[in-house]
Simulated scan of single mutants.
Amino acid sequence: MSLEVIHLTKKFGEQTALNDINISIKKNEIIGLLGPNGAGKSTLMKSIVGVLKIDEGEIHFNGKNITQNETETKKNIGFLPENNPLYLEMYVKEYLQFIANIHKIPASRVDEVIELVGITPEKSKKIGQLSKGYKQRVGLAQAILHQPDLLILDEPTNGLDPNQILEIRNVIREIGQEKTVILSTHIMQEVEALCSRVILIHQGTILQDSPIDAFKGKYESLEEAFASYTS
């Protein structure tokens, strides 16, 4: 797996959301994507997965330009956006089977993923009946169903209770042993628990891209380091 973001710039009218972003990822790891609200994190993630059109620069995934190989790229990337769009009137297993059919995946993989993310007791319920925690699990299940090389998660534990957070983290940790995960979060304990590398974006520019220990550096905590870098 390799991902290269090369001189990526994205503007919305007069506002520059991303300014000359360069990132290189070449191995399986869990990367924490950090930044204040409005820093450009979601814009970067949506650019990588092909939701947003690239204005300037290039993104290469597994050696291929994602703009020129859009369908092939999307087959190998899983994405859980922050708002987790789901079909609330569909039943859990029905929805995941629908996603599997799009990817031409055998039904056995649906049962495997249902077990992996811990939604077996809920698989016959309508998605709209689920708690937020279980909806997040369904969203995570659709993102990993096709066994992508790269998994991008935007605030995956947002709004979950402490037990649900630990369970989702365990799933992410297990996936990160075989796949590359880019994880956007404001929860520093999550970064410390899961990530080996941190990319910090502020005002559309990368301020830090380093192993987690180097990011923390002289500071007593990740929160303190984050506040210092972005103040």
Rank of each mutant, 00 (worst) to 15 (best):
S2M: 11
I6L: 13
H7A: 13
T9C: 03
F12D: 14
F12K: 14
N22C: 07
K26W: 00
E29C: 11
L33P: 05
G35S: 02
P36K: 09
P36I: 04
A39G: 06
K41V: 07
S42W: 03
T43F: 01
K46Q: 12
S47A: 13
V49T: 12
G50N: 10
G50P: 06
V51G: 06
V51M: 15
E56T: 15
E56M: 11
E58L: 11
F61G: 04
K64E: 14
K64Y: 08
I66V: 14
T67C: 10
Q68P: 00
K75V: 06
G78M: 08
G78P: 08
L80D: 09
P85M: 12
L88Y: 11
E89F: 12
L96T: 06
F98V: 06
F98W: 15
I102G: 04
K104R: 15
I105V: 09
I105S: 10
A107L: 11
R109Q: 15
D111Y: 14
D111W: 05
E112C: 09
V113R: 08
I114W: 06
E115F: 10
L116E: 11
T120K: 15
K126S: 08
Q129K: 14
Q129F: 06
K135T: 03
V138H: 05
A143Q: 05
L145V: 07
H146D: 09
H146W: 00
P148W: 06
D149L: 09
L150E: 04
P156I: 07
N158T: 04
L160A: 01
P162R: 00
E167M: 12
E167Y: 05
E167V: 05
I172F: 10
I172M: 05
E174F: 14
I175W: 03
G176Y: 13
K179C: 12
I182Q: 02
L183K: 01
S184R: 00
T185D: 03
T185V: 07
H186Y: 07
E192V: 00
L194Y: 04
V198Y: 02
V198K: 02
Q203K: 15
P211V: 04
K216M: 07
K216D: 03
Y219T: 04
Y219Q: 06
S221E: 03
E223Q: 13
A227P: 01
T230W: 06
